[in-house]
Simulated assay, not measured.
Amino acid sequence: MTAPLLRVRLVLPELDDAAQRAVRAAYGLRAADSTAELQEAREQALQAADDLIAAAGTALAV
């Protein structure tokens, strides 16, 4: 578990799923064995980060 993930989970527990998906996607970049896999992993990580930001915006707007 990373320190930023722990902070998010403690301060905004409703973001837990989105935050964990973002972390897994970021670490998934390391598993790429080819340029094509790296590009796919990069796109997934960017989407997961966008999803986390959207979820945070929704949670903080309440």
Rank of each mutant, 00 (worst) to 15 (best):
Q47P: 00
A59Q: 08
V11N: 09
V23G: 01
L46T: 05
E43H: 08
Q44W: 01
V23L: 08
M1C: 02
L52H: 04
D17K: 15
A45Y: 04
R42T: 11
T2P: 03
I53R: 15
E40P: 03
D17V: 14
R21E: 12
Q47V: 06
L5C: 02
D51Y: 02
G57F: 00
V62F: 00
A61P: 00
G28F: 06
I53H: 10
A32T: 10
E40N: 09
R7K: 13
L5I: 11
A3N: 11
R21G: 01
A19W: 01
A32P: 04
V23M: 07
A22Q: 03
A59M: 06
A41P: 02
L6K: 13
L15W: 03
R9W: 02
Q20Y: 01
P13E: 07
L38H: 14
P4N: 09
G57W: 00
R9C: 13
A22C: 10
G28Q: 08
E37M: 15
E43T: 10
R24S: 13
S34H: 10
L6N: 09
V62H: 01
A45K: 06
A55C: 10
E37W: 11
A45L: 08
G28S: 06
Q44F: 00
D50N: 13
R21N: 11
A45H: 08
A61V: 00
A49N: 10
L10R: 15
R9A: 13
A54K: 14
Y27T: 14
R24C: 05
L15V: 09
A25Q: 04
A3E: 14
A56V: 07
R24P: 00
V11W: 11
A49C: 09
A36V: 12
V8A: 10
A59P: 01
R21Q: 13
E43L: 11
A26P: 02
T58N: 07
A59N: 07
A26G: 10
R24W: 07
P13W: 07
E40I: 09
S34A: 09
D51C: 05
V62Y: 00
A41V: 05
A32C: 09
L15M: 12
M1P: 04
Y27G: 08
Q47S: 11
A18F: 02
A25T: 05
V62M: 01
D50G: 12
Y27V: 11
A22N: 04
Y27W: 14
S34D: 08
A48M: 05
A3Q: 10
A18W: 00
L6S: 11
P13S: 07
T35V: 14
Q47R: 15
